[in-house]
């Protein structure tokens, strides 16, 4: 029998920090950031490809969610900080090796961009909108002129943001569950999927809806592929990663992960979307809400489980 004991009484969640480093705030922050990234990337992509007319909701309407999501995300991040008054330190330092740092800076870029994008389309929502000041009219026309460039910036930063939500975690060698390069693409795909779902939810145009059901299906397929790959990778790796994977393969997170994330968040909505494409009438809301919920749960579960996984020594 092997017995490992901390004899100095450290077995205390107040002291063992890995039990309580990050709570709902970071999970929510990662989810909101990911979903905003998905929405903005899709909008930018379709705009660049000149499909604005076909996918009006995706390009012009859904992005209105993004600033809210981003600001909410930033608020969540802020709430998570324990030394809040020193928040500004994030923006007096550029630390290239710190994902947290470049995440903060990415948000610094993409949040205003998302606001500008919305401003350019505000008349789609409020047809009688008036900027009132000349400078604002000038700005609007300036950005309209360089909208393609703006779209490129938005696309690139949205993808960085989407990947960042995963990299933030996967940079931590100390937490075997997070320490996989698949987390970046997986969170990006999940963010895109949530973004596509948002349009599915908002769009009144059947063709657009069908298109986004198809997009979502592809994304779900990619996510499933990545998830399977992730576990295969873990199981082919070191003991600590095998232990980490066990949490999902029979361990404490098995039920929540497979039920909430995979079945309710991917398989069932995928099925519903297939049915929708196959001309069954399904309320579009259902799969969309499920996908978004699944995407949220994915963040929660990975953030929590990751903190539990650790090196053994």
């Amino acid at each position: 029998m092997k017995e490992e004991t901390i004899v100095s009484g450290r077995m205390n969640q107040l002291i063992d920090p890995h039990l309580h480093i990050w709570h709902w705030q970071i999970s929510l922050y990662l989810f909101l950031g990911g979903m905003a990234a998905g929405i903005l990337a899709i909008a930018a992509l379709y705009f660049i490809r000149g499909r604005e007319k076909d996918y009006k909701t995706a390009v012009r309407i859904t992005p209105f969610l993004a600033p809210f999501l981003l600001v909410l995300g930033l608020i969540a991040l802020f709430i998570d900080l324990r030394h809040k008054l020193f928040f500004w330190q994030l923006y007096t330092n550029i630390r290239l090796q710190s994902p947290m740092s470049w995440g903060a800076w990415t948000l610094m870029v993409i949040t205003p961009v998302s606001f500008i994008w919305c401003a350019l389309h505000i008349k789609d929502i409020f047809p009688r909108w008036d900027w009132k000041f000349k400078i604002l009219f000038d700005l609007e026309s300036f950005f309209n002129k360089y909208k393609i460039a703006l779209a490129w910036v938005m696309l690139i930063y949205a993808i960085i943001l989407g990947i960042y939500t995963g990299i933030l975690l996967s940079a931590f060698n100390a937490r075997p569950l997070w320490n996989t390069s698949i987390l970046g693409p997986l969170f990006l795909a999940s963010g895109l999927s949530a973004g596509a779902a948002a349009t599915l939810l908002l769009s009144k145009n059947t063709m657009e809806r069908k298109q986004f059901a198809r997009v979502d299906l592809v994304l779900i397929g990619i996510e499933l592929f990545l998830i399977i790959h992730m576990f295969m990778g873990f199981n082919a790796s070191t003991q600590v990663q095998i232990e980490a994977a066990k949490m999902f393969l029979g361990g404490p997170y098995t039920m929540s992960f497979w039920i909430f994330v995979v079945i309710l968040g991917m398989l069932i909505p995928a099925l519903l979307e297939i049915m929708e494409l196959g001309k069954f009438h399904i309320p579009a809301m259902m799969p969309a809400v499920m996908v978004i919920f699944g995407s949220l749960m994915l963040r929660f579960i990975i953030v929590y489980a990751g903190q539990v996984s650790r090196w053994l020594y």
């Binding site: 004991t5 063992d16 929590y304 539990v308």
Partner: peptide, 16 residues
């Protein structure tokens, strides 16, 4: 308990 056991327990207790 050992450190690992404790973590497992508390992880379950905390719940997602």
């Amino acid at each position: 308990t050992s450190r690992r056991d404790f973590i497992k327990i508390s992880a379950m207790g905390a719940g997602v």
